[in-house]
Write a protein that binds this DNA or RNA. Structure first.
Lengths: 153, 153
DNA sequence: TATTAAATCTAGTAATTTAGTAGACATATA
DNA sequence: TATATGTCTACTAAATTACTAGATTTAATA
């Protein structure tokens, strides 16, 4: 399961992506619009800043903005940053590889093979989906949901 | 991440699959061979029994055996049984669907779309991989690892 | 029938992770 | 100087994970 923290991070980043031309955005604004607990969000944004995803300005008229092009920030990137490995077991993770505790022989572990498939399929999706893709997707979804079904037929 | 509990369940089931013609197998045997804490394994096996995966006999000469054909027990089945949904967020789960807490409109949620892809890819793998497949796979992996590389050329 | 070897049941516990909260502090603008 | 912002430190409560201990039930066998 994706943690709430990671989900909030994605929501906040997508909000900032949509507000890209609006200059700096304040925490309270993001918190309110995306329904994220204010203080919790603060910590998340600091984390994203530390990881070079966000840029911030302190003081009056301060706020947050993206530090990179949304086409360069992948969903996989953010999830790994907040939640750690995408892989369901440590021995199939690329970026966080670790031997499984009870594992006797990695070379003959069947579970490892299935889980590697899962991690590869997951990474293939999340590492090729960028904030910009999701922004475009949102626009399409909104158009679709504006069109009442009756009119589409 | 897959819990240790689910991993132990899979290991135990795969062990029982390999011992299928050996009659009943006792907990201590599984625990020892698969390096699973004995008492923890007990609870897991009871769980699997309750879910109709295992058959057991009490008393002297008792033990456990599979209650079904290994070709009918999928990995997805077991993981759902122990860990719950495969889906990374509740709103894309088929068997455990729930609305996300902060979600304002499911129809326009971009995160939902990516996560649905992940859940579908994961389910496609885990729901079509059965204990029998993994047993066959193990045999192949063992042969390969028995063959020193030098002799294969 | 007593002994033994097995599963099962009840009831915990310690450590870790998750999802936050409170409040003081630093900084920039007006 | 007042005010509106981000930042830092230090908590906390609840849930989850990964177990453990010990009594009990059941069936075979000596």
């Amino acid at each position: 399961m994706l943690s709430k923290k990671a989900k909030y991070a994605l929501k906040a980043l997508l909000y900032l992506t949509r507000q890209q031309n609006a200059g700096l955005v304040i925490i309270s604004d993001i918190a309110e619009k995306e329904r994220i607990p204010r203080k919790f969000l603060e910590a998340i944004l600091v984390d994203l800043k530390t990881n070079g995803i966000l840029h911030s300005v302190r003081g009056k008229k301060g706020g947050y903005s993206l530090a990179k092009d949304p086409a360069e920030i992948s969903v996989g990137n953010i999830i790994r940053m907040i939640d750690g490995p995408l892989a369901p077991i440590p021995c199939v993770s690329h970026q966080y590889y670790r031997k499984c505790d009870e594992c006797m022989d990695e070379a003959t572990c069947e579970i490892r093979i299935v889980m590697k498939k899962v991690r590869d399929a997951t990474a293939a999706i999340l590492d090729t989906t960028f904030l910009s893709d999701l922004e475009a997707l949102k626009a399409i979804l909104q158009e679709e949901s504006d069109q009442p079904i009756d009119f589409q037929i």
